[in-house]
Design a binder for these strands. Sequence first.
DNA 1: ACACACTGTTTATGTCGTACACAGCCCTAG
DNA 2: CTAGGGCTGTGTACGACATAAACAGTGTGT
Lengths: 309, 309
Amino acid sequence: MTEDSELDLPRGVALAWGVSADPQRGPKREMSVEKIVDAAVELADADGLGAVSMAAVAARLGYTPMSLYRYVSAKDDLIVLMQESATGLPPAAVREIDGWKERLGELFRAQIEIYLRHPWMLDIPISGSPATPNSSAWVDMTLEALEETPLDAEERLAVTLMVTGHAHWYGAVLAGYSTVGRTTGMTPAQITAREAALYDGLISPDEFPALRRAVDAGVFLSDSDPFVFGFERILDGIAAYIDALAAGGARSAGAAWAVLEDADVAADKKYREAQKTVREAEKALRDAQKHQRQALRDARDRLARHPGA
Amino acid sequence: MTEDSELDLPRGVALAWGVSADPQRGPKREMSVEKIVDAAVELADADGLGAVSMAAVAARLGYTPMSLYRYVSAKDDLIVLMQESATGLPPAAVREIDGWKERLGELFRAQIEIYLRHPWMLDIPISGSPATPNSSAWVDMTLEALEETPLDAEERLAVTLMVTGHAHWYGAVLAGYSTVGRTTGMTPAQITAREAALYDGLISPDEFPALRRAVDAGVFLSDSDPFVFGFERILDGIAAYIDALAAGGARSAGAAWAVLEDADVAADKKYREAQKTVREAEKALRDAQKHQRQALRDARDRLARHPGA
DNA sequence: ACACACTGTTTATGTCGTACACAGCCCTAG
DNA sequence: CTAGGGCTGTGTACGACATAAACAGTGTGT
């Protein structure tokens, strides 16, 4: 029992809070956690999270792989620290902005910018609650923006979560695009065109009527931003709720749905099997069509080779 | 040039659409893509995405690792197929429901259920557009639910994205909890309590005043569901927009924000460095406090051991 | 001055994805 | 009806990767 007196934080989180107790004896340290994290972030910025291996980070700093473990207890910790570093503090200028809507908008925009600069952040799986200092600062500032509203504490947190989530989702979809762009060297317009072409070939009007209509309406070629629209709707929804509160409306109960309590795995299996039947029928149909096309092509080929047959 | 006549779909996606052209010659196949995918899903359901290795899947089916590559061209493809399989078709019963709000609600709920049953889906990074048959079916049904509204095609797609994103986010946060639960064997209540305790110790009223107030208000101990609240606000926001349209309001421009166009990496570096200064100052402060506490503890210890000193 | 906590390094282990070459199977062209 | 070749599942092999363990050198508190 070394009695560290700190609650057992997830190791990486503890490091992020600066709970480290630098050693007294021994040779001078040549590296530092910060240098390691910076090197890792640079690697990830350049070539994605996959490029971050302990060996690569160490090499970038001119050391051997194992040396990093004197500063970071495991790779997972390093990733938490990278996240923390890239997250940074929310822009202080937000405090000068008037109106909760505008503040939320600016915070949202700032989050998207971060994700665009560090797309690898979106590849990090959400692991419980990485309650690190910087992420706490973002939550704090978002909550502060909402203090002028009549929302209660829980509702404010719910809004915070919603904004963060929307930004995360936005970033993920956008980053998907930019990753494809970097891998294939296509411009966004080219990617869009290609996707549209793919959709065009795959979405049959029988199986996906509504989606087909959307494709025909050219939604996948549009350059308007669906996420901005979504964010506006979210703000509207919050405003409507606030108005209703002001008009003496009752607060939302916000109770968890009963359905979600027990994930009935057995039922799911049965369900998936039933679906498989449907899928198989559909596949059979597609196969039939495909075979027909293939047969036609073969016939044509043979005819071309042996015109007299 | 084998002239496959199909556009070059991402390999895994092609498989999902059943574009496979089963071979004519050679020994009878003993396995099938479906069996492989099912085995992989079962593994992932039981022990997470990390438990899905080619070797593990093969072993479960009684074959050698390499045999899988006759059916699946790479692990990434297998994962796309797992996603597709677990996604399944949207519940057909949604079509019987009256009202777009109610339909969206049911689709949302159904998505959450899927994520609860297959939490590993949330660990799969969003890779561009996995436009697979089943995911298309979900989009199709969501769009269909919105056809009774005066929203135009792009707006409907934006709403679809928003609902999916919220569900994904919801699932991710929830799954984080349940993963922690499985790893540590704690009940949700215990986890909540633990998190609350952690927050309590880390969130200082000086650095995070608004967040501190929220903690004190007990938001992390509440059992009400922030996501349901959020979803209600989203629906409200859409409804408000529809009302505005009906009243003759103009459509949202939804133009992309200029800021987002160019992610200025150099500026970010400068920004991060400036933040580092702030962080360092804060850390110094925390360290000072910590050292003080440590010194105090040491003094007490020494006093206890040598009462006469 | 000496012990020992601590440094960065070396070596080694186990897991993983997957390339490649193989021996046997069986459809199809001749 | 036979031969060729595309197919099957398998075995071996290789290169990443995370990280455990043992090591020789360093510098500080006793």
